[in-house]
Design a protein around this nucleic acid. Structure first.
Lengths: 230, 230
DNA sequence: ACAAAAGTGTTTGTCTTACACCCATGC
DNA sequence: GCATGGGTGTAAGACAAACACTTTTGT
């Protein structure tokens, strides 16, 4: 599952299935392990490269979870080890081998059910976005959405897009700067929309954020979080 | 990976391997999927039952992660889907089929490396304990360590054992009560060490804690409190 | 009576929020 | 000059840690 930022929105890469099960529906890119012996993470990197022509080093890639429910693939028992990849803004991708068509879809469209996915891939996307949302609070994951160099406004846009909230520019600036080693300044500035040129930063060495960037409690402090079964 | 509380300490179930790879060493209990078609979670439940004779409903069980590194098993490629189980205090378990000896080992002994584990099981234990530590903050997971009925002091002991810290009794009391639906009172009281009898509670309907029970920052605020505002 | 748990209150300090304000600079 | 991003200040309020104190009740 590959996430990126496009036009200020969180997007996920989906491919249109060209083969038999769920033919014509949207699905997450993926594939099978090679010959016995291929590392799982290596296989994920390989699939990522095949689908996006992305360099291995620059992309965040982590294991999301393993999905092995019985009915999830009509062909029989298939166990999928889902991975979450996060990359800077990517161009429209080229179609892979088993994909007729590939494209970026706003994450919102998947969460709302507006776009239907094959297999249990909607569940995987939900889990992945939830993972990204919480990791943004405690880790430097947001920088993976930005390029080598980025402005604080761009970083804020990442947080706003992933969390689906608006943040105060001034307070965001202070919070981000307060975590030393999160982002480090990098030379000269560039302008974008005709204002004062924004300073450029790059990802710092620190990967765990303390204090964390707290999320504006979209549903927590509401009123009552009625009894939720799980 | 099965966690429980024994004598106020967090313990993990280990078995002594009776078979060839790593024969005689300590390892996590586990096994292989049955015939094609068995659900992964079902298999975890089955192994849990075999090892501890525990009822299926009363135990917390969640997927921890999938470990498939090449060299992790000398017999060849083995992909393990690790699960984390949390149960109330259990008696000394009976040895399973492929286990010569099974017993509870303090988690601390594994983390410190005092007890060496077969395969990459030390890594799995580390990941599992870390998962438990963070989930204690935001979820009602701690109640899974307690029996059907428990006292607030017992619940506090769980937090202290898993986090490895000491908590203020009064503040803990207030925090726990502040999260409505976390624990609900249940009838009469019992005494333990000759004081005022403790009130009994049971797990409430709420599974996500808001506000969370914050952990006393064992390592976060440690070093870099030095930095000053520019 | 004692001891342990249940409760309540307060003080102190930090963190968060919301918002006002100034500065810099390319178009 | 205006828009936009950078950057600082600050007051109101929420929250957390620390700790004193009272009440309860089985043994």
């Amino acid at each position: 599952m590959i996430l990126t930022m496009r036009e200020g929105r969180l997007c996920v890469l989906l491919v249109e299935r060209g083969e038999d099960p769920f033919q014509g529906m949207q699905a997450l890119p993926g594939g099978f392990l090679n010959h016995a012996g291929e590392e799982i993470l290596d296989a994920a990197h390989r699939e990522l490269r095949e689908e996006t022509a992305l360099g291995a080093g620059s992309v965040h890639l982590e294991q999301l979870g393993t999905y092995g429910a019985a009915g999830r693939d009509p062909r029989g028992r298939v166990v999928s080890v889902a991975h979450l990849a996060i990359a800077p803004g990517l161009p429209e991708p080229v179609a892979g081998t088993d994909a007729m068509n590939a494209g970026w879809v706003p994450a919102e469209s998947v969460l709302s059910g507006e776009v239907a996915l094959a297999f249990d891939h909607r569940r995987i996307v939900t889990d992945g976005i939830e993972r990204a949302r919480t990791k943004l609070e405690f880790s430097a994951l947001a920088t993976a959405f930005c390029g080598e160099l980025f402005t604080i406004a761009e970083l804020q846009q990442v947080y706003e897009a992933v969390w689906g909230t608006e943040l105060d520019t001034r307070n965001f600036y202070r919070k981000v700067q307060a975590v030393k080693g999160f982002i480090v300044p990098a030379g000269s500035g560039r302008r974008t929309t005709g204002g004062r040129p924004a300073r450029l930063y790059r990802a710092g060495p620190k990967t765990v954020l303390s204090p964390p960037l707290t999320r504006p409690t979209p549903s927590t402090t509401e009123k009552e979080t009625k009894g939720e079964a799980n």
